[in-house]
Write a protein that binds this DNA or RNA. Structure first.
Lengths: 192, 192
DNA sequence: TCCAAAGATAGGAGTTACTTTCACTTCCGG
DNA sequence: CCGGAAGTGAAAGTAACTCCTATCTTTGGA
């Protein structure tokens, strides 16, 4: 990883953290993109080179590229659905349990600001498609539609866990909630 | 239902159908809100009285208020999850199977135009919450979180069905796809 | 070590059409 | 027949996002 790439990554992280603090303090609509750029000390045009929209500053996840490898690893010795569970627990848990305050702020913005919520939902649709393509080859019939359903269920489980985690202000560790969510969703028919 | 209300509803329907045709033909960004207003022969400010945003013209569903009653009815003699399945099949199926061409156009916009997709996803989050509140009292433990998971699963099933329906251009009736989706999601653990 | 090329940033101007506001008119409903 | 809700029209604002060029920084090879 060259200097250029590291610098870029650093700028992304600093911009995101600064912006989220500003959004939480003054409100998403009140904080203008130029304000953020000024605070981070970059030009607005530079900010727009990194983040395509104002919302994406919040939605972007610096650990997004860890899911692919984690899932590929887990697929070696687990069923597809279990592999997703395992990967989610591994990647999400450690991060959210060490960087709790910041992730709570981010979660708050994502659920409270409609336009951010919408942007994040769009993102999730793409994630679902990517997950489906990852696991489809590991299904008995290689059926992409089945894979999409599994991926959707896995995402549903993780968002449910995430919502609860946020609602109870990180009282329980995220890993535990994710496990519970996957368990319950695997046995939906048994719910009364 | 008075004349006023009927007129309003009529304007909404006509506006939506006109707008969707224009969007499909010329592209969402190319068609301006003023163009739509001119075509429907109302003032732009009137259009904005009915639809809060440009995207909402597409996302709005004239049958949205049928779900509540349908679910309440189905809850009388079914488990909560089955009640959702039943209500979805009833309300969705007949509409999409009689109004197919138009609903396909609408579906196409919702999946192709990012901003519309995002708006529709936000809408779905609210729907999930409403469904959860409807079914929670019918669960053994009255647990709202469980209800949210069930509602999420039901919505996931219906979107999966809807996607397939769109992908195969309404080759199979929507009701059948929804049933299949609910079946599969009830037995996720059995998928290999 | 140095240098050329590739790529990133600053800075600023512009544009656009979505959306809001308000005073005014029209017309349904009891 | 009147009160009040809904529609109209015009106008303006807003800030997100785009585009451009000059300037600087990094990179990889000589």
């Amino acid at each position: 990883m060259g200097l250029r790439e590291r610098n870029r990554h650093n700028t992304l992280v600093v911009t995101q953290r600064t912006a989220i603090e500003m959004f939480v303090e003054h409100g998403f609509d009140e904080v203008k993109v130029t304000d953020i750029a000024a605070e981070v000390d970059i030009a607005p045009s530079t900010l727009y080179r990194h983040f395509p929209t104002k919302e994406s500053i919040v939605v972007w996840d610096e650990h997004d590229d860890e899911y692919g490898p984690a899932i590929a690893r887990a697929l070696q010795d687990r069923s597809p659905f279990e592999a997703l569970r395992c990967a989610f627990v591994t990647v999400l848990a450690e991060r959210y349990d060490t960087d709790t305050e910041f992730q709570l702020l981010r979660a708050q913005l994502m659920s409270d600001v409609p336009s951010i919520y919408a942007a994040s939902a769009s993102d999730d649709a793409e994630t679902q498609e990517q997950l489906a393509h990852l696991i489809a080859p590991h299904l008995g019939d290689h059926d992409l539609d089945t894979a999409r359903l599994l991926a959707g269920a896995a995402l549903l489980a993780s968002y449910w866990a995430f919502d609860r985690w946020q609602a109870e202000s990180a009282a329980r560790p995220l890993a535990q909630l994710i496990d519970e969510a996957f368990d319950r969703i695997s046995h939906l028919a048994a719910v009364r």
